[in-house]
Nucleic acid binder design. Structure first.
Lengths: 137, 137
DNA sequence: CTGCCTGCAAATAGTTTGCAAGTTA
DNA sequence: TAACTTGCAAACTATTTGCAGGCAG
């Protein structure tokens, strides 16, 4: 909790109840969430909460690099977000049940090769693997 | 042209003018296009063309595996589509000018490892690399 | 007190859909 | 002719925005 407060302070963001709850929820989840999923979770405690508040904060957090907006959508076409961790990783997603696992990144050498061969300065990359998990097989 | 006709026939799709033009345009482009980009290109020859027709056909083609819907959007948040080629590949995108290059896939061994370690049956994967191209550097 | 946040309502924009007329096989 | 396609208009839905009151610093 204290960590969240200082995280907000460090980024010049006011320490509001909504923000604390959004970050807390994202930290406690083991999988990325969409704005709406967050919304329904938090609405229980605060019926006045608006979806636009969630979006505004997720965007602000993304801007400040506290949260990462994935290029992965759930089955409702909603974008997913996760807290940004220190370790760079990718995702393995079960197309049946939607379960998401984290994967390490195997691409360090490959990215250097791509940069060299194409004369690009690499800025970012995304890898997502889809399959069927053990339970759903 | 004849190829497009038989491609449509082989998939039980009627050989209409719109379909031929959509596929022809996608084949001739060297980069993926959005529905709207296609729409504006084709609207010149046919002012009555509707965007919904493009969407309907792109979805139908995707369903039939003639076209691939990428999980990449252009700067207007429009989904991009490309014709499905025999060779599996990924994309290297310049974040400045939007240029898209094809990349081979370096992940064969890695995917086997992921499947084994996580007990998943791998179905699909997406890799996209973002950077700045030579011209934009 | 002053600027940032949030609730609220309405707009924006990509994509989809129902229906009737037109086309393909 | 029967089934599929398209034009057209309208709906749907994720996300964003303007505004006014509320709260953090």
């Amino acid at each position: 909790m204290a960590e969240i407060k200082s995280l907000l302070q460090a980024n010049n963001l006011k320490n509001t109840g909504q923000r604390r709850k959004i970050l807390k929820t994202l930290y406690n989840e083991d999988k990325p969430l969409s704005a709406k999923e967050l919304f329904f979770k938090l609405k229980k405690d605060n019926p006045k909460l608006k979806l636009s508040t969630i979006y505004r904060n997720l965007n602000k957090f993304t801007e400040k690099d506290i949260v990462k907006k994935l290029n992965i959508k759930n089955e409702k076409h909603e974008n997913l977000f996760e807290v940004k961790t220190d370790r760079h990783h990718h995702h393995l997603i079960c197309v049946e049940c939607g379960d998401i696992k984290e994967l390490g990144c195997p691409l360090d050498d490959y990215l250097k090769k791509v940069a060299k061969e194409n004369n690009y300065k690499i800025k970012d990359h995304r890898l997502t693997i889809y399959g069927i998990c053990n339970k759903c097989k």
